[in-house]
Design a protein around this nucleic acid. Structure first.
Lengths: 218, 218
DNA sequence: ATCTTGAATTATGAATACAATTTGAAAAGA
DNA sequence: TCTTTTCAAATTGTATTCATAATTCAAGAT
C-alpha cells in the first residue's frame, strides 16, 4: 500500500471540471444548450460556488461560453473551430510521434503495435465502436510514450474540443478504409521507430481527417 | 466605432485572470510564493469569490498550483517544464510560420520585416529591453498573421508559462549574437514567404533558445 | 536546550445571502 | 390586433457566512 502520497481528496470543483468535461465531450450536455446552474447543482448535490468555478475553467478551455449576466452555454462545434484546431492537433501529434520513437520503451512500442492489430481486426469485423476505442488508445499510448506532460496537457485540451465533432458526422466507409490504410503506414513507422516519418504520417492523417469532416459536414 | 460588440463589461474574475496572469509573467508575483487570498482581495477591492475563480483558471493553465486546504502558490519554473514546453512552442511557432507565409497580407509581411530591422538596430545599439520588445512583437505578428485563434490561444498559454524564465537567466552575449543570426534567416524566409523553410528555422530557433537556457541555468 | 503536544488562531473550501441584471408576460396604448 | 411599457419572477455576479482543515506558538516532557 502506498503511504507516501499525501491522501489527496480532490476538491469539488476539480471533480466537477472532470465530470462536466466528460459530459460535454460525450454529448450529454449538448452544444448550444445553456447550463442550468441551479438544476445542475441539485442533481450533483453541490452548491453553486464549486460549479461556477468549474464553469470558469471550462470556459477558459473553450468548452463553455460565459455570457455576462446570462449564464453559461455549451460552446458549439463550428467548422471554423475544427479547421483551426486540427492543424494544431496535427503538429502536436507529429511531435508526439517523434518523441515517442525516441523515448518509448520496447513494451510501449509493443503495446501500440498490438493495439493496431486489434484495430485492424475490428475494422475487418466492421465494429465501429471497438475500432474507435482502439484508435483512441493508440493515439493516447503514443502521447504517453512521448513523456511530455505539457504536450499531453495541450493535446488533451484540444482533443476534448474536437472529439465532439464525431457526434455530428459519421465517418464514411471510404474514409474509414483510407484511415486504416494510413494507420498501416503509421504502424510501420512505429515498429521501425522512424520518428520523422511517423511525424509526417500522423500530421497527414490528421489533416485528412479534417478534410473528411469538411466534406461530411457540408 | 464598433457598435456590433454588445458592450462587454468584463466580469471581475476575467479581469482578475488577466491581471494576475500579467503579474505572474512579469514576476510581481514570484514563483513559489503563496498567494495571500485575503490580502490580495483587499488590495484589489474584490471579495474572495471572484479571486478564487480566477485562481482556478490560472491553476488550469499551470501558472498557479492549488494545494488542497493550503491555498494557492505561484508555480515554479522548472527546467523540466521548460524542456517540455519549448518543443511544443517550437512546433506551434513552426505551424504559425507556415500559415503566416500562406495567409499574411503584404502589409503584415512588411510590418514583420520592418520590425526585424528595428530589432537588428537595437542589437547593434546593445539595447536589450527594446530588442526583447521587438522580438516579442515579431513573434506575435507572425502568430497574428497565421489567422488561427486556436493556435494563438495555446501559444499564448505556453508563452505565459515560459516567459518567466527570462527573469531567471539573462541571455549571454554569444547566444544573443546567435539569435540575431538566426533571425536573419527567419527574416529571409518571411520575405520570400517560404513557409516550410520558415517553419524549420523557427523550430530550430526555439530549440536553440532552450539549449541556451539549459546551459545558463546549470 | 530541543523536541513534542495541543489549544488558539488563521486560512481555506463550500454554502448561503444579497444585490443587480435579465427575462417574460401581462397591461396599457396605438 | 399589434406594439410598447411596466413590473414581478428568475437568474446571475458578487459578498458574506460557516464549518473544517492547517498553522502557530506556548507549555510541558525528554
Amino acid at each position: 500500500m502506498n503511504l507516501s502520497t499525501p491522501l489527496a481528496r480532490p476538491s469539488l470543483h476539480e471533480e466537477l471540471v472532470t465530470r462536466l468535461r466528460q459530459a460535454i465531450v460525450e454529448g450529454s450536455l449538448e452544444p448550444g444548450a445553456k447550463v442550468p446552474e441551479r438544476e445542475l447543482c441539485e442533481n450533483l448535490g453541490v452548491s453553486r460556488t464549486p460549479l461556477r468555478e468549474a464553469l470558469k475553467v471550462l470556459a477558459n478551455e473553450g468548452l463553455v461560453i460565459l455570457e455576462s449576466n446570462r449564464g453559461a452555454r455549451i460552446s458549439n462545434v463550428t467548422m471554423e473551430e475544427l479547421a483551426a484546431a486540427f492543424p494544431v492537433i496535427a503538429v502536436l501529434e507529429g511531435l508526439a510521434g517523434e518523441l515517442a520513437c525516441a523515448l518509448a520503451t520496447d513494451e510501449e512500442i509493443a503495446q501500440i503495435v498490438t493495439r493496431h492489430h486489434d484495430m485492424f481486426r475490428y475494422y475487418d469485423a466492421g465494429d465501429r465502436p471497438a475500432y474507435f476505442q482502439a484508435n483512441h488508445d493508440i493515439h493516447a499510448a503514443l502521447m504517453a510514450a512521448a513523456r511530455n506532460p505539457v504536450l499531453a496537457q495541450h493535446y488533451a485540451m484540444l482533443s476534448s474540443r474536437v472529439e465532439r465533432a464525431r457526434l455530428l458526422a459519421n465517418v464514411s466507409d471510404s474514409r474509414w478504409a483510407e484511415a486504416v490504410e494510413e494507420h498501416r503506414g503509421i504502424l510501420e513507422a512505429v515498429e521501425t521507430r522512424d520518428g520523422s516519418r511517423l511525424s509526417t504520417l500522423l500530421k497527414e492523417h490528421l489533416n485528412n481527417k479534417l478534410a473528411a469532416l469538411k466534406t461530411a459536414l457540408t
